[in-house]
Amino acid sequence: MVRLVAFFIGLFFSGMLLVGLGDTVIQAIQEPAQPTAEHEFHEMPLAVSFAHDGPFGKFDRGQLQRGLKVYSEVCAACHSLNLVAFRDFAALGYNEEQVKALAKGWKTEVPSINPETGEAASRPAIPADKIPSPFANETAARAANNNALPPDLSLITKARGDGPAYVYSLLMGYRDQAGYKNEEGQELLKEFPEAATPASLHFNPWFANLNIAMANPIAGDDQVTYDDGTKATKAQMAKDVSAFLTWTAEPKMENRKSAGWAALGFLIIFTVLAWMSYQTIWADKKH
């Protein structure tokens, strides 16, 4: 009885799937899926390497400090970094005084209240504060940005596939749409005339739908002046800020990797010993 019922249920499910299969195929032939501009012209992140890549990789402190400078002078105008506190910057190689100075000198102040009147006010940041947001709230952020919301950058390199390379590619990826061709030599506006970027947006093939609200933030060389004398080329700035945002997303990366090697070392010894005791115990037992 079980087998008979099972047989008919199986026949029903498998049968309906095969009918569905036929239906899918017929539909695909009658109305083949139209290629979309996103599908044909969206680019995968560029290959870029960082000091922190790989199981032994460590952050390059100098690069992180340069990245912080790019963030604070360029990105911080619109993007918040809600999950990072000034005290965390000690990990970038700043001492206590420098962290205090960074907090105090931050362009945006921390929202507060007037202790006398209780009215809204602001005060300079201290190391315990999180990085203050450039906008008071989402509405203010949208109002200032053509109704687009600049995302918080704390986790951006973990919230996008191949994150550090994605941020780098996006920053380097602004192109002139007129005459833009992909690797197959297809010209975007000839293939998809309707994909022309609307006036308020900016063409960038590394962005999911090719049109991003953010204007090219790093337009050319020397937009910031690095304290360590590194030449601030466009690629250098893009790479430094990507490294910095990798750190903001994963500040404990170095602890994680070093703990990982210790754990692996312990486990390899444990496993070898376990293997030897297994062999010894089973020595007289064929199995």
Binding site: I9, G10, F13, S14, L17, L18, T24
Partner: peptide
Amino acid sequence: QIAAAYYFAHFL
């Protein structure tokens, strides 16, 4: 669809 049809057919 092919794989799921097989899955049900396999067991049932």
